[in-house]
Amino acid sequence: MNLSEEKKSLHIPAAVPTTNKKDFESDQDVRWCPGCGDYSILSQTQRILPELGIPKEQLVFISGIGCSSRFPYYMNTYGFHTIHGRAPAIAAGVKATNPELSVWVITGDGDALSIGGNHFLHMLRRNLDINVLLFNNRIYGLTKGQYSPTSEVGKVTTSSPFGSLDRPLNPVEIALSAGATFVARSLDRDTKHLQSIIKAAHEHKGTSFIEVYQNCNIYNNGAFFTYTEKATKADNTVVLEHGEQLVFGAKRDKGIRLNGFQPEVVYIDDTSDTDLIVHDQFADDPTLAYFLSRMTDVPEHPLPIGIFRSVQCPCYEDMLTDQVQRARQSNGDGNLEKLLNSGETWVV
């Protein structure tokens, strides 16, 4: 029995469908390489969706090209696997046409930052109420292992046997620069954290951007193990929580404070608590978020994960709807006969 029949027979109100993870799994075989980090991201999304209470016919997953972009095929929702880099633009058209839909963009480091870099920037500044998951594995997987725009300098790959020359982009930093209203980072292997971030992204009104560090176990295995594996994770990541001090370490004995314009790691014994940075994700001013975003791939600093920034700003589709309504109020509903006969007319 499918869901709609069930609803009819049981008279369940349409507004509150009860769903579980299985309801969001499509009938297609998942075809990522065994052990790929994408499996976990798919799973965490399917696990958290029932909690969000969105009827599945209202969900649209839109992707570009790349390993991550196969994602929509595995979701039993509406889905659109589009062309390389263009998912943000297609998502804009979907959301502008029907603001009721819950629109999710699934992209990767190459899709969003190389070929789709332009659309990525404009999606963020436009601030439609959509959610964006960028799977960052710092490699081109689908095309068999070339360096990506987030690969470290000197990366030896099939297309860079002598090491790559391009300096990497930092997705969180770019998102903040583009004026994104919600910017977060999570890890494929931190399932609970990832679920909580996906949930927070959904709850944020505006474009929510999540960078997910994702392991490509074929072409870039272990790229993020320092941040994801038990032995090293606690000492190399700092979890951002609003209103909390930046404290980290297996013994939670280290913190981050500002020394002039530089962040520095201090042992909590050495300093009074008040010196530590207190995270404020709702700050209007993005300076703190920028500053935290710069603590990426700096050996002496832990990697921040969590929500860097979450601020309210009018959504594109709401302003668009508002313009339509105002135009209808001031000019009346469009009358085609009148429109065609407007301007200077004459009768023969």
Binding site: N2, L3, S4, A14, S26, Q28, P55, K56, E57, L59, P72, Y73, M75, N76, T77, Y78, G79, F80, H81, T82
Partner: peptide
């Protein structure tokens, strides 16, 4: 409702 599908 009920027509969820994927294209690409």
């Amino acid at each position: 409702v009920g027509l969820e599908h994927r294209i690409g």
